[in-house]
């Protein structure tokens, strides 16, 4: 059965995924909005940057983030001068790295949903005296709800499943940075296959449930739209 260390890893993983999902919805929504609406030349470059984690090995991303956050990196110097210390090998560092790593999984569904809705509902809302901010909350958000739901679930699930970035940035500190995927790796290395099984089977069940939830809760988005 699961041991204290396993439970601690599970708790840490959930905490990390929840924090990262919340952050991503907060940051990803304006970014997705901008990408969906801008005619700027920067759009292509920004889309490419957001999608980089989809193609890059997590180790590459983790490596550069490590340098960035390290004592000689610009981010590391910033956090030090703010009295926050260094981020690598801390929970904060994991949050930051995971946010980058899961960004495309949140931005793309929201961007697609906003693009599918198009400009017309916003124009209609404007002719009915809704300010842009008002129409975002009263029209865009309800219409894009399936996209936001997909984004949240994918962002959460993807953060739960990451391994490489965590190992590069956070290492393997129990209770601080040792998430489930790392814990499984440790069990396997120590030939504790029974322990590895419990956690791995748990992950399989969890992933299945999450995806099942996603596909059954999300109404067919093609039927919607103005």
């Amino acid at each position: 059965m699961l041991q204290t260390q396993d439970w601690s890893a599970i708790w840490l993983t959930l905490k990390l995924a929840t924090t990262v999902t919340a952050l991503l919805l907060l940051l990803g929504t304006p970014l997705a909005w901008w990408l969906a609406n801008t005619r700027s030349r920067l759009r292509g470059a920004a889309s490419a940057l957001v999608s980089m984690p989809l193609v890059l090995p997590p180790t590459v991303l983790g490596f550069y983030l490590l340098l960035l956050m390290g004592p000689n990196g610009p981010l590391g110097q910033l956090t030090q001068s703010l009295g926050l210390g260094l981020l690598p090998f801390t929970f904060g560092g994991l949050v930051l790295a995971s946010t980058f790593y899961s960004l495309p999984f949140v931005v793309q569904p929201i961007q697609n949903a906003i693009e599918a809705i198009g400009a017309r509902p916003r124009e209609v809302a404007a002719t009915l005296r809704a300010s842009p901010w008002d129409s975002f909350w009263s029209v865009i958000l309800p219409l894009a709800r399936p996209g936001f739901l997909t984004a949240a679930v994918l962002g959460f699930a993807h953060t739960v499943g990451e391994f490489g970035v965590v190992l590069m940035i956070g290492g393997n500190i129990p209770g601080q940075t040792r998430v489930v995927s790392v814990q499984i790796f440790d069990h396997v290395e120590a030939l504790e296959y029974a322990q590895a099984h419990w956690l791995s089977a748990g992950m399989v069940a969890f992933s299945f449930l999450v995806l099942l939830l996603l596909y059954s809760l999300n109404p067919d988005s093609r039927r919607r739209g103005v």
Partner: peptide, 11 residues
Amino acid sequence: YVFQEASLFPH
């Protein structure tokens, strides 16, 4: 403003 297609809010 009345648009070509009715543009009611579906939600």
